[in-house]
Computed example of a mutant assay.
Amino acid sequence: MTLTLVKAWNGAKERLKEAGIDQPAIDARLMLEVAAGVSRTDIITDPYRELTAEQVATLDEYLERRARREPVSHIIGRKGFWKILLSVTKDVLTPRPETEVIVDEVLKAFPETMAFNMLDLGVGSGTMLLAILAERPAAKGLGVDISEEALAVARENAANLDLDGRLALMRGDWTTGMGDASFDVVVSNPPYIPTADIETLQPEVRDHEPRLALDGGPDGLDAYRALAPEILRVLKPGGLFCVEIGFDQSAAVEALFNEAGAQNVRTVKDLSTHDRVVTGFKNPLETPA
């Protein structure tokens, strides 16, 4: 029996629905697009195009992996974020729409033609750094990660987006070795899940995302304790910082940055109205040591 695009999509949706997968229609479409080498438009405008036997087999393999709760981004090797498409592997966090709050905050602070120097701590696949550089052609950036595997993914994404000439990527432990007052903006999406909560997460996260990028210590705040004073140290006077947080960590993270001397510290909510980003500035009158 031949399988057309529309039959393949409907069949895939049903298999994923029976497996208890959230958003089965979206997941089925994304995997069908890659397995059959088609676009979303092709599925709509040419629904009776037939799949080859090899394409059917590939789609079947994808569906089996998804039913075992492997993330779609790992299966197809890519994920959209903001206005860019990123390669994704098991060595990096899958980009999430909540993180776009940081991109939005930075873009609002820096006009399109303005030159600025950005630091992304825990750069992962390059999600935030590349999304911002793609929108701000005069900006340059540095991405730091402790994982060499994650940096390899970021390098690939930077090259694919023709942004590798405007950023550097470095293996390191947060801000170690960096000079004072070096950056106009610092962003970070550090690990913030309390250790004991990791086993309660969805299987897609618990079993497939890198533990190093999830585990924030006993209370989830270990990274912020280290980052707050260091971010303020490497920021230029008047510089902006934005860090992603867990939905219940606003007060604690704001307090850490206030204690470090930040100004105008506030929390920004995501589209689900959850507290998502703590942001603020370094004192514009502060002079570097």
Score class of each variant (00 low, 15 high):
69 R>Y: 06
163 L>E: 07
221 L>K: 01
17 K>A: 15
5 L>G: 04
58 T>I: 13
216 G>H: 07
175 T>D: 00
190 P>M: 09
109 A>R: 15
177 G>Y: 09
135 E>W: 06
235 L>Y: 01
112 E>C: 00
180 D>L: 00
101 V>I: 13
280 G>K: 02
9 W>R: 14
284 P>S: 14
267 T>V: 14
30 L>P: 00
129 L>E: 05
163 L>C: 13
284 P>H: 07
282 K>Y: 07
197 D>P: 01
274 H>R: 13
99 T>R: 10
28 A>K: 03
96 R>I: 07
83 K>W: 09
67 A>Y: 07
219 D>I: 05
220 G>C: 09
38 V>G: 04
278 V>N: 07
94 T>N: 10
182 S>D: 02
98 E>I: 08
121 L>M: 07
20 G>P: 14
50 E>R: 14
273 T>I: 06
157 N>W: 07
23 Q>W: 01
91 D>C: 03
143 G>Y: 05
133 L>D: 08
41 T>K: 14
239 G>W: 05
16 L>D: 02
141 G>N: 05
195 T>N: 09
287 T>K: 12
202 Q>W: 04
123 V>D: 00
27 D>I: 11
134 A>F: 00
263 Q>M: 13
288 P>D: 13
286 E>M: 11
63 L>F: 11
64 E>A: 15
119 L>R: 03
117 N>P: 00
175 T>W: 10
105 E>L: 15
242 C>I: 03
95 P>F: 14
106 V>S: 04
249 Q>R: 07
150 A>S: 08
47 P>Y: 13
274 H>L: 14
206 R>S: 09
191 P>G: 11
276 R>S: 08
244 E>H: 10
68 R>Q: 15
162 D>N: 14
270 D>Q: 05
252 A>C: 02
210 P>G: 07
79 K>S: 05
186 V>Y: 05
282 K>R: 12
244 E>R: 08
47 P>Q: 11
66 R>A: 09
263 Q>S: 12
104 D>P: 05
231 I>H: 03
218 P>N: 11
256 L>V: 08
6 V>K: 15
97 P>R: 09
204 E>V: 10
35 A>E: 04
136 R>W: 04
68 R>V: 13
91 D>V: 01
242 C>S: 15
49 R>G: 12
268 V>G: 02
142 L>E: 01
261 G>R: 04
138 A>N: 06
126 G>H: 01
289 A>N: 14
44 I>Q: 10
70 E>S: 04
30 L>D: 06
283 N>A: 08
243 V>R: 01
267 T>N: 10
103 V>N: 12
236 K>G: 12
281 F>E: 05
180 D>H: 10
166 R>V: 08
149 E>R: 13
161 L>R: 12
83 K>M: 10
113 T>D: 14
273 T>D: 14
159 A>I: 03
263 Q>F: 06
224 Y>C: 11
22 D>C: 00
277 V>P: 01
162 D>W: 01
233 R>E: 11
200 T>E: 15
159 A>M: 02
223 A>S: 07
132 I>V: 14
168 A>S: 13
196 A>Y: 12
62 Y>R: 10
19 A>W: 01
230 E>C: 00
46 D>K: 15
248 D>R: 15
231 I>F: 06
